[in-house]
Design a protein around this nucleic acid. Sequence first.
DNA 1: GTACCCATGTAATCAGTTACATGATTCC
DNA 2: GGAATCATGTAACTGATTACATGGGTAC
Lengths: 178, 178
Amino acid sequence: MSLRHAVLGLLAGGPASGYDLLRTFDVSLANVWPATQSQLYGELGKLEKSGLVTVAAEGPRGRKEYAITPEGRSELHHWLTEVEPTQVRRSDMLLRVFFLSQLERDEALTYLRRQAELAAERHERLTALGKSVAQGEDPLSVYGRIAMEWGLRLSATQREWAEWAQEQLTGRQPPAAS
Amino acid sequence: MSLRHAVLGLLAGGPASGYDLLRTFDVSLANVWPATQSQLYGELGKLEKSGLVTVAAEGPRGRKEYAITPEGRSELHHWLTEVEPTQVRRSDMLLRVFFLSQLERDEALTYLRRQAELAAERHERLTALGKSVAQGEDPLSVYGRIAMEWGLRLSATQREWAEWAQEQLTGRQPPAAS
DNA sequence: GTACCCATGTAATCAGTTACATGATTCC
DNA sequence: GGAATCATGTAACTGATTACATGGGTAC
């Protein structure tokens, strides 16, 4: 049930239309909580029905600008401070590791090498993204940087782990990365 | 579509009933790919229809023992070696970080402190679990240890990150952990 | 006027969760 | 005989994805 809170969180920063929100989801929330267009419009409808958001204005082309209500803010606050995050589960990357014993050792090594590679690529993409984003001192960029740092640390950890795992299988160092 | 591959992977290690598989899911795959009873029985039915598994034997109480077929093995191999793992997305823990600017600084700090704490607890649970599990040299325990190591590194990373994030907000060290 | 973007909505399908329902066997 | 465990299945619902459908406004 986090999509509704993602929407509330975005609307807490100012009113927006479904279309606006969709772009925000695609750009800034894509790696954390992706949402499709149909899902978004559906959720906005439900949020309005339950009084957590309202249609603040209507524009051209049937545009509806949504704004968060006090009830919406209160629900957001409750979710932020009192609801424990659910543990991230379901990694098909890790699921495969459980079954690597079904492969030849070389195939298993290739798999782990690929995971290190993918993690390194993700790390590079994030680094590039970080450089392109303005580094300010305002609250939003502080928290943006914190979220970004998570991605960096996560991808670094995955790479180190996958390299360590290769060593476990070979008993020696994996080929040095670039 | 990974549940089917999880089932194939387990059956690749030997025939089992839905009930057997369910226990394995609850015990060893719970943190990687949880599955419910109804989901499992449904999937086994579908796998049988598509010829990836067969009912090898029927026992008392309507027990059906499933075995993987050559086609099933081939599908498993394909999934292991040629299908790229999907990126793990959707972390409501991280989603909240994007909206911490809606909270008072103290509330945000409490949130981050709690995330460090949860990560530390998870790390301890895994360490305890690791000690209780036999440490052999057979392929299964090698890969089991590799998967376990991922969990350890992930929780350590989360803890370090959450502590670092607190420092970003305070400009000083967070209180030393136990 | 036509291509592109803005803008919203619905329908079908799939994966996953929770709850309900039933019954056989084994252990004590 | 009663409780625990083995064992399978179905139904209702929620969340998410993909595809379909439509039309207004703007830039050139």
